[in-house]
Amino acid sequence: MNLVSPVIVGILYCLVMSLIKEPHRRRFNAVMVGGAGAAYLSGGGFGPWELPFVALMAYVAYRGLESWTFIGIGWLLHTAWDIAHHLKGNPILPFAHDTSQACAICDPVIALWCFRGGPSLIALVRRWFRPSRTQDHAEHHASAPS
């Protein structure tokens, strides 16, 4: 399995989420992590233990409505659940064996972004490619004849 593509998927997720303005971005991500908590319900790999996990993730998602930290915790909890399902041989998509493993690689990327407060990666990229006014000003004066 390719280990790089799940990292790319995690980064792309964060980039797409950056299109949503705050505070809606945080709330939308709380809903997403809550939904991720129910991802394994139909497969039922751990039988009735799937239900307390869904309840835990619902609680974490609820707290995530007001806290990026809780959203990050939710993604890490989901990572642990992904690993457990992968080791049991009960993937998130039954027809694709490595999907839980890929999810376990992708989710911590999203969690790290959440622990940073879910910043707009688009704004960050724009800052990298646009020199600051002070740099432009300094460069202009350095190249001006004396």
Score class of each variant (00 low, 15 high):
Phe46Glu: 04
Thr79Met: 12
Gly64Arg: 04
Ala111Thr: 09
Gly44Thr: 04
Ile110Phe: 08
Pro52His: 05
Leu19Tyr: 00
Ala80Val: 14
Gly37Gln: 04
Ile105Gly: 02
Ser132Phe: 04
His140Gly: 09
Phe95Asn: 14
Leu65Asn: 06
Phe70Pro: 02
Phe46Ser: 02
Asp98Arg: 00
Ala55Leu: 15
Pro131Phe: 13
Met1Cys: 02
Glu139Cys: 06
Ile83Tyr: 10
Ile122Gln: 02
Asn2Glu: 06
Asn90Thr: 15
Ile122Ala: 08
Asn90Tyr: 12
Ile20Pro: 01
Ala84Gly: 05
Phe115Gln: 08
Trp128Ser: 11
Ile11Arg: 05
Ile8Met: 14
Ile11Asp: 07
Ser132Pro: 09
Phe129Cys: 10
Thr134Glu: 15
Ile11Gln: 04
Ser143Asp: 08
Leu3Ile: 07
Met32Leu: 15
Leu15Lys: 06
Thr99Trp: 12
Pro119Met: 10
Ser42Arg: 13
Pro108Thr: 09
Met57His: 07
Ala144His: 10
Asp136His: 04
Ile83Val: 15
Pro108Phe: 04
Ala84Phe: 10
Ala123Val: 09
Met57Asn: 13
Val16Glu: 07
Ser146Lys: 14
Ile11Phe: 13
Ile105Thr: 12
Ile105Ala: 01
Val7Glu: 09
Gly47Leu: 09
Tyr13Arg: 06
Ala30Gln: 03
Ile110Val: 15
Gly47Glu: 11
Ser146Met: 13
His97Val: 11
Gly43Pro: 05
Gly45Val: 04
Ala111Ser: 10
Gly89Phe: 14
Gly10Tyr: 08
Ala30Arg: 03
His78Leu: 08
Pro131Asp: 10
His137Tyr: 07
Arg116Val: 05
Ile83Glu: 05
Val60Lys: 03
Leu19Phe: 00
Ala61Thr: 12
Ala144Leu: 08
Leu112Glu: 00
Leu77Tyr: 11
Leu15Pro: 10
Met17Tyr: 04
Ser42Pro: 05
Ala30Thr: 05
Ala142His: 13
Thr69Ser: 01
Gly44Phe: 02
Met32Glu: 04
His137Phe: 06
Ile11Ser: 03
Met1Gln: 05
Gly74Trp: 00
His78Val: 03
Phe46Cys: 03
Pro23Gly: 04
Asn90Gln: 13
Ser18Met: 04
Ala111Asp: 07
Pro94Asp: 13
Ser42Gly: 09
Phe28Lys: 00
Trp81Glu: 08
Phe115His: 10
Gly118Phe: 00
Leu121Ser: 01
Gly34Asn: 06
Ala39Phe: 09
Thr134Asp: 13
Glu66His: 15
Arg130Pro: 01
Phe95Pro: 01
Leu41Gln: 07
Tyr40Pro: 03
